[in-house]
Design a protein around this nucleic acid. Structure first.
Lengths: 126, 126
DNA sequence: CGGTATCCCAAAGGATACTG
DNA sequence: CAGTATCCTTTGGGATACCG
């Protein structure tokens, strides 16, 4: 089961870390999780994801769209209306991402505690 | 400091994006997945994770250790021997992370295809 | 509403020489 | 073996003004 990749990954053009960086962009997981619950409009996302800047939301959505994880549909209304949704490709990771997000909430206190222990120990030993 | 979390999350000290950044550090997922298969030594990890620099491996391991996701055990041998392993806290996300890693491998071709389509379309329309 | 454009700073990350 | 230290480049990311 331990198939080590001595000679890089299979896809020379798209190594593992590069693909994983996709979902490691600080806001990406939250965006995908939010969209996983249903299509959302730009400002809906902006409000739902606390603290995200307009610029970063745009950049992340573009990047996700470019990589085929998110679709962007423009409805030609009087006030512009754009709807974002996850694609089937992204559906495959909806569950694990949601699990991670839930874990993040649940584990936060433990992480803080761990940090304090670690930092305190460092202060004592050094 | 930009304290712009109006309502913020429940844990004032540890908002969601900050926790998620933990696993979004480009190499973090791979490190955790690798350790998920069993304890590993420094150089084992260095070889297993293709392309990672010594510096980044160290930094990531330290960070994971600090946050209680990875344990570090030093065996006082003649040649230094250090063993890394995931903690129970990280066990909780072993499965979703593994799923993500597998997905990354599997979905890589589709991502590349999506990008080419997107980039081509942009070139034509602009 | 749904973005772009610009500016600027902080953090991530690579390379690599050195060390107990 | 398992790191640390140093240097330097690239990327991420916030703020905000502006636009169709």
């Amino acid at each position: 089961m331990a198939q080590r990749n001595t000679a890089v990954t299979d896809q020379a053009d798209c190594p593992l870390p590069e693909v994983l960086r996709l979902i490691g962009d600080k806001w990406c997981i939250q965006i995908l999780v939010e969209l996983g619950e249903g299509p959302r409009r730009f400002t809906q996302l902006e409000r739902a994801i606390d603290g995200i800047s307009r610029r970063m939301l745009t950049l992340n959505l573009r990047n996700l769209e470019r990589n085929g994880l998110v679709s962007r549909t423009v409805h030609p209304d009087a006030p512009p209306s754009v709807e974002y949704a996850i694609t089937p490709l992204a559906e495959d990771i909806r569950d694990p991402l949601e699990t991670l997000a839930n874990w993040a909430r649940h584990a936060a206190p433990a992480l803080i505690a761990a940090r304090q222990t670690y930092d305190a120990r460092l202060g004592a030993e050094r």
